[in-house]
Design a protein around this nucleic acid. Sequence first.
RNA 1: GGCGUCGUAGCCAAGUGGUAAGGCAUCGGUCUGCAAAACCGCAAUUCACCAGUUCGAAUCUGGUCGACGCCUCCA
Length: 463
Amino acid sequence: MIKFYNTLHRKVEEFTSIKDKEIRLYTCGPTVYDYAHIGNFRAYLFEDLMRRYLSFMGYKITHVMNITDIDDKTIRKSIEEKKTLTDFTKKYVEAFFEDIKTLNILPAHHYPKATEFIPQMIEMIQVLVDKGYGYTTDDGSVFFKISNFPDYGKLANLNPDEMRTGSRIESDEYEKAEGRDFVLWKSRKPEDGEVYWDSPWGEGRPGWHIECSAMSTHYLGTHFDIHCGGVDNIFPHHENEIAQSCAATGDKFVNYWIHNEHLLVDNKKMSKSLNNFHTLRDLLNKGYSPETIRYTLISTLYRQKLNFTFEKLEASQKAINRLRELKRRLETVSSNSGIDLQNECKTVIENIMKILGDDLNISGALGVLFTWVGDVFGLLDQNKVSSTGAQNGLELLDKIDTILGVINTQSHDIDSSIEVLIAKRETARKEKDWVLADEIRNQLLEIGIILEDTPDGPIWKKK
RNA sequence: GGCGUCGUAGCCAAGUGGUAAGGCAUCGGUCUGCAAAACCGCAAUUCACCAGUUCGAAUCUGGUCGACGCCUCCA
């Protein structure tokens, strides 16, 4: 049984897909005005973990992720840099694709951009206006009338009547009937520069929320299985999406709303506005491997706040090395006698999948995995594993890695200078020149290479 | 003010009624030229605090304290 925490009902509930063994999934993607930070990637990695798990369990998944390339920030920054909107966002779209590849995130099947779906958005807004959910204002903007949609506030568990009218609403430059109504179409303003489209209501641009409604419906239909995003999107973004989509189509829209918690730095939300963020590129430049970053962000339950520290990165690298070391040891086994690990492996994989089925309890699953890892190391030290057993162990690691994605992705680029040093040290060791041998080992350590002597010769790994 | 999440060893983190997984770090031992890796052993009489329910509570109930998030930019 697979269970997920559904924000809509605020509880963990059994997952059933609309169509048997098929899942239609929509995940909120990046706004491409800057490089994404690792807090953003925590969301994409949680979605990747979920997707890989569901694939493993035999579901065929259609995954759509939007790319927001029209909003206040993309427009403002493109004007600052004196570029067209598309020219400006192109760089960050490309960076985003590079980064998800680096992190071994499975690509979505569709990456619609907001700028490419203006007609669909206009069409949906028109439907809302025709049905009486949308109204226009004198300046040519269109708003969604919340009071006509009784279910408004259900996802966020907010009562619209009690919503605080704060400074942000007062400072809103667009006219609207009620403070809590949200914008579907924004009339053209001087600060938008040349970014505008023609519409039945005049020149302007779409509001933020409508893009996800239009694009998800376009690819996945009016009723699909899962919609993901960060908890900060629950309100207003997803609440508004539900209102727009259900009002426009009359259908149910989404069965499971699944939200990930934030990544924290110094126990505060990692965000651009607090300037406490790390980008993937920053961490790679500091020498941390993509797998380390992936493991760090993936290995805590997605609904738990995760405080980012460099200690955690170090611990993750060690944990990955432990898995890779087991793999290496299993690959050296060539014994006909011993345990074949058949039943052990079967039980372990079943347990892991069962635990992951409980709302993606990755920590629990890793606990099972590492208990097994310790057991196998113990048997290997006593030469009690047969080559069949080693094969079974390797298969288990491969299976697990189709979900974790951190063991087999090593970019173990052969650096010839490292090989030369290792060879030099081996000569020194044969001559029992321990001083030189140790010197070379320390030299390698300084450039982040750990050298280990094994009965089969020296091996090296990244620190 | 409203809504919500969380508090488990030095750090991270599972466990939601039956007597505390796992990772990292530390310390002893085996192995090693020395290391590293691996293994063995040691490590919370205890789950923020107080009260209650129960044969039994980290887990349920009430309260207290503390941390964080959302309430129209946000993963």
